[in-house]
Design a protein around this nucleic acid. Structure first.
Lengths: 255, 255
DNA sequence: CTTGTTCTTGCACGTTTGTGCGTGTTTGTG
DNA sequence: CACAAACACGCACAAACGTGCAAGAACAAG
């Protein structure tokens, strides 16, 4: 017997390769009724993964190329985290998405119709959102660092200084109540600190292993983050120490 | 079986390349009655994508379909074209990749170790090259147009004016020996003409249906293109007329 | 183990949508 | 005007759809 979540993932997979699915075909293939398939498609459409049409559904996101590479690592966990973090975005906001695969997951889970303005210097995130016509997308140009897949350099810094987003979604390398927010790259740390300065509210999402961890380059104290989304499996101890530092913690649902 | 929404997208696709469709042809091609086709055309006309005329429909001026829709059609042909075009790049060159799905295919076929510097304003192309460490990638930032999936606007134009690439790979909407190079969007045409001015050599790759075709907005005379890569199945007549205009034609291998 | 809750699934029902066909009208052409 | 092609409109039918409901599985608490 196949789990419902597996079936959902399988349909999503077919969508990203074939760009279209048909309800009756899927029903035959997975040995369930068409009603169940339609429910699945409704679910996927609500998440923005596809567009429902009479007889089936069509894929919406046109750039699954790069994503598949990273699927090996902790995709399931990052998807859950991204979905939970995306739920915090509110209609009409100006949001800056910092680089990182967790933020890519977030971008893929932004529900339709929120009418956001999104800025980013991560090219994969930009590609994932490029065809959404329910938002305005601003990409920060510059020389792309192959390690992070995002534009970096003086040009980027200068462009960032001109932006004052309502919400900054920071890509976290490591966070610790005492060491604060830290990064593995010097320039990345500089960019992040500039972003933090200009942003209204700072949100971040972090896998368990990034909590109570530290990297060589300092971005700022832990409380630059106003809202932190963690996995459902985070320990009470970690939550407590970060709460004590003044951060609001939201757990992702355990699904 | 083809979904109704797919058929609608396919018709929209044909409209944006051929600028005209004929009801009876479409009925035969999609194996439906002419009534159904007429209903589809009525639908597209209501959305402003085309103008109905006796016998079929004509495309309305600035109505290029979104890249997302375009992807399905001619991928195999575009891959072959992209591979052939990529073979023309030489070690150490500074290359500008204009937007478009054909250029995306080219980007995916750039052989390793060429040590190129690549600039682009297309986010999908940027994403495809973001993790290559055998080249320098410069992305032009700005507001992303969901129809083309690339950054556009004054910021982009200004950044482009500062670049003087050795090779410009132009994304072609339509080229004709007499009408020259034309585009479906006004701003796109302006950007292209600026790119052409600053580039050393201009290369382009085009599917058969883009040859001897014209769009509303003028980019420049046909001979701004120095090298044109065509499909293996191109007619001798088309080759001759473009050669006469002073363009070097290279056919992709028929594989 | 039993009970209660929640979630998933399939089925029945009425509704909506897409399609083809027949009829009558309009359009283009000689 | 005559005539054929293209068209609009209404009708009928099947397929796809949404919704409410009940049966069953999974799970937590007692």
């Amino acid at each position: 017997m196949m789990l419902a979540a597996e079936r959902l993932a399988a349909i999503s997979d077919r969508l990203s390769t074939f760009r279209r699915v048909q309800a009756d075909e899927l029903a035959r293939e997975f040995q369930v009724s068409e009603d169940t398939i339609r429910r699945d498609l409704r679910e996927l459409a609500a998440q923005g993964h596809c567009q429902r049409v009479y007889g089936g559904a069509l894929a919406t996101s046109p750039a699954p190329s790069r994503v598949q590479d990273r699927r090996g690592e902790a995709t399931g966990r990052k998807q859950a985290l991204g979905r939970a973090a995306a739920a915090n975005l509110k209609k009409g906001q100006f949001v800056f998405l910092d680089s990182g695969s967790t933020n890519l997951a977030l971008a893929q889970h932004i529900p339709p119709g929120l009418d956001l303005t999104i800025a980013t210097h991560d090219v994969s995130i930009a590609a994932a959102l490029a065809n959404r016509d329910d938002m305005e997308l601003i990409v920060i140009g510059g020389t792309v660092d192959p390690r992070t897949g995002s534009a970096m350099g003086a040009q980027v810094l200068s462009a960032m200084q001109r932006l004052r987003p309502d919400v900054l979604v920071l890509g976290l390398c490591a966070i610790d109540a005492h060491a604060g927010v830290t990064s593995f790259q010097h320039e990345d740390a500089i960019l992040k600190s500039v972003l933090v300065e200009n942003a209204g509210q700072v949100m971040a999402a972090a896998l368990n292993e990034k909590l109570s961890a530290a990297a060589p380059f300092h971005v700022g104290p832990a409380d630059v983050i106003s809202t932190l989304v963690t996995e459902a499996t985070v320990t009470d101890q970690q939550v407590a120490s970060l709460r004590a530092a003044g951060i609001t913690i939201t757990k992702a649902s355990s699904s």
